[in-house]
């Protein structure tokens, strides 16, 4: 791992003002680093700001405050014209492949497009390369002549992945890429992502609400709650020794496929998540936290080291401290 990260986000804020004066604080002060070739999971429930953070990182959304550095370049102050060549190096795959594939274009044309736009190949050569991309994601060259509707959901997602890797990006943002797919298909797509990450030495930011998925794809996880990162840790450690009570609540809500495990005693989460227009004072999880103290209502905890590569934003972390 090089000392200098591929992506470095500092103090990022993305706010959306609403008509009646309220403000949605979707991302509310996030620091995040992704190293070259690293697969990082960004986990959170709906409204946590995880997708907003991912899009802001690619500058698909305007930033309210903070900095985003990509390979040493300050994306937060680059004009769009200078962003364009960088876009080849950072690609995104969305949840719904049908919505991101033009239904009137043949798959070959869909895959040739980024090659031509970024002047990697043209004409027959681009078509040829598109065939190789399809084979790489587990489809075949014959599929070049077909239209998106002729494929299953899993195959369409493979096409989106092929298009995303066409420019050999250094970062792939995958935003809930398998949430709409059946279980058995999900595992296959996760395996494909993992293989591509290793083969192309491509970093992945895997945005998901699915903790199983994170385990299959990532080596490190960042947990987001109401616009902030509350914990980050190597994947195995997060599952065995969560330090933040929110992470513990999330893990406790995962239902195992074996009845004997699924029926273990578990703590029922309390209350509804507050909305990002009314972020609680102090620690933003204190309204639902089973161990909140007076201090948590008043003071906001910063991310602090609780173990090797393990940080949590909690005054009373559940584990760690020894490394």
């Amino acid at each position: 791992m090089s000392a200098h990260p591929l992506v470095e986000i500092k103090g990022l804020k993305v706010y959306f003002p609403l008509a009646h004066g309220e403000v949605v604080r979707a991302v509310d002060g996030v620091d995040l680093r992704i190293h070259a070739g690293e697969a990082v999971g960004l986990v959170g429930e709906s409204g946590s700001g995880k997708s907003t953070l991912a899009r802001a990182l690619l500058r698909l959304l305007p930033l309210t405050a903070g900095e985003v550095w990509f390979d040493g370049r300050p994306l937060h102050r680059l004009p769009e014209r200078e962003m364009r060549p960088l876009r080849a190096q950072m690609q995104i795959v969305f949840q719904d492949p049908m919505a991101s594939l033009n239904p009137r274009m043949r798959v070959g044309a869909i895959l040739a497009e980024p090659l031509e736009v970024h002047r990697i190949a043209r004409g027959r050569q681009a078509w040829e390369q598109a065939g190789r991309l399809l084979e790489r994601v587990g489809l075949s060259r014959e599929h070049l002549h077909r239209y998106p509707h002729e494929f299953s959901g899993g195959q369409r997602q493979r096409i989106c992945i092929a298009r995303a890797i066409a420019t050999q990006p250094r970062l792939l943002v995958a935003d809930e890429p398998t949430s709409a797919l059946d279980l058995s298909i999900r595992a296959q797509i996760h395996r494909l992502l993992r293989e591509l990450q290793e083969e192309l030495n491509m970093a992945i930011l895997f945005v998901t609400h699915d903790l199983h998925a994170v385990r299959q794809v990532c080596s490190r996880v960042e947990v987001m709650y109401l616009g902030k990162i509350v914990e980050c840790a190597p994947v195995q450690r997060l599952f065995t020794e969560p330090a933040h009570p929110y992470t513990r609540t999330l893990l406790d809500a995962v239902l195992e496929p074996m009845p004997s495990q699924a029926r273990r005693p578990r703590r029922l989460p309390t209350g509804d998540a507050p909305t990002a227009t009314r972020v609680p004072t102090g620690c933003r999880f204190h309204t639902r936290c089973p161990i909140a103290q007076e201090r948590c209502r008043e003071e906001e905890p910063e991310l602090r080291e609780v173990g090797k590569g393990h940080r949590a934003a909690c005054f009373y972390p559940l584990s760690g401290g020894t490394g």
Partner: peptide, 11 residues
């Protein structure tokens, strides 16, 4: 539903 809410609803 989100996982934490799912558990509440099943319960």
């Amino acid at each position: 539903l989100d996982v934490t809410v799912q558990l509440q609803i099943l319960h």
